[in-house]
Simulated assay, not measured.
Amino acid sequence: MLYEPTTLASLACLLSTALREEYGIDPAPIFAQAGIPLGAPDSPQQRYPLSKLRVLWDLSREASGDEAIGLKTGTYAKPAQFYAFGYSWMASSTLLGALQRLIRYYKLLSTASVQVTLTENADNYALSAVFPEASKSPPKEGIDCGMTALLALCDSIAEKEIRPLRVELTCPATVHPDAYRQALRAPITFGVEVGTFYFDKKTLLEPLQHGAPDIAKVTDRIADQYIESLDPHKVASQVRRLLIALLPSGKTDQELVSKRLNRSASTLQRQLHAEGLSYRDVLESTRRSLAEDYLRDQKHSQAQIAYLLGFSDQSNFSRAFKRWTAMSPKQFQEQPRQN
């Protein structure tokens, strides 16, 4: 059975709101034609196949006659609509911490093929997204919606309008450029290879008034468990569970893990590739998730954390953590104290 990417159902609710509020269109027949129930999801965890969301976006664009419908839809986003990720977002101590959670929990929002990274530069942070597989990537309208939803979510916890320094988009300038400039509140360069938002460092590091590290710790755990539950039988989940047990020993090579899972290294790599991952991807994400938890707990020294994660020394751990989060372990650990 081929893997079908899914999206959190609340994203479809944003579109129904936009159809009513922006265009005065009854969304019921559009949702019925797309095969998606209208109204609040039966559960905050409910998901819809990406293929149905594509149909829904196509029908909504045709009904509205607006190529920029995705940009307008994202402005209706509110954190509480996005299950555990939304509550972790609201409890973040800084916007930088919130963006780090976006990267960590993106699969809670959508399992579409997207690689999101956050890079620290001299005077800014760069949030980039790459879509490696077109067939498993969100449609253009979904990407547009995600960009304006990101700004709406930032506004909600900063309690002010957040403006990027600049934005780079992969689409050509011939696609309603004025709508993009107005919606994204920044100078835009079109036709680049990688879409990127550049944010001022001071803005992202400013303490947020309602940051709540204790609450974030709880909701982070719920988000982690939910992502794992999306398919506990996936090979990546099996590898992750085994790595958690093996990391303190430092024995995390692919050959050993493959043997423990009763398959060859080449078979394991092929199975992970079918899930859109590599062995290194799973190892890195497992280490990162555990590292953030250990640092928030503040029960272990950085040297102890390096050992628990299977690093040969603290400096290797520090370099890896800086690569994952664009922050040093010390900077990450000090974020909650700023409140």
Rank of each mutant, 00 (worst) to 15 (best):
V192L: 01
E193M: 05
V194P: 01
T196G: 02
T196W: 09
T196K: 12
F197G: 06
F199T: 08
F199K: 04
F199R: 03
F199W: 09
F199G: 09
D200W: 04
K201R: 15
K201V: 07
K201H: 07
K201D: 08
K202R: 14
K202Q: 14
T203W: 00
T203R: 02
L204Y: 04
E206M: 03
P207K: 02
L208C: 02
Q209C: 00
Q209F: 01
Q209G: 00
Q209P: 00
H210C: 02
G211S: 07
G211N: 02
G211V: 01
A212M: 11
A212I: 01
P213G: 00
D214Q: 12
I215A: 13
A216L: 12
A216I: 00
A216F: 05
K217V: 02
K217H: 13
K217M: 12
T219A: 00
D220N: 15
D220G: 06
I222L: 14
A223S: 09
D224Q: 08
Y226P: 00
Y226I: 07
I227K: 02
I227A: 03
E228Q: 14
L230K: 07
L230T: 06
L230D: 07
D231F: 04
D231Q: 10
A236Q: 14
S237I: 13
V239F: 12
R240T: 12
R241T: 12
L242P: 10
L242E: 15
I244A: 14
A245F: 13
L246V: 06
P248W: 10
P248V: 11
S249D: 13
K251F: 05
T252P: 04
D253Q: 09
Q254W: 00
E255K: 11
E255I: 09
L256N: 01
L256D: 01
V257Q: 04
V257P: 07
V257I: 15
S258C: 00
R260I: 04
L261E: 08
R263Y: 03
T267R: 14
L268S: 04
Q269E: 12
Q271A: 13
L272G: 03
L272E: 09
L272P: 06
H273E: 15
H273M: 12
H273V: 00
A274N: 15
E275C: 05
G276D: 11
S278Y: 07
Y279F: 15
Y279L: 07
Y279P: 04
L283W: 03
E284K: 08
E284M: 07
E284V: 10
S285F: 07
S285W: 05
R287F: 10
R287L: 08
S289P: 01
S289L: 08
A291D: 06
E292D: 04
D293V: 09
L295T: 06
D297G: 05
D297L: 11
Q298G: 00
Q298V: 00
K299Y: 05
K299C: 08
K299A: 12
Q302I: 06
Q302N: 13
A303Q: 13
A303V: 10
I305A: 07
A306Q: 04
Y307R: 14
L308E: 11
L309Y: 09
L309M: 09
G310P: 12
G310Q: 09
S312K: 15
S312F: 05
D313T: 02
D313Y: 13
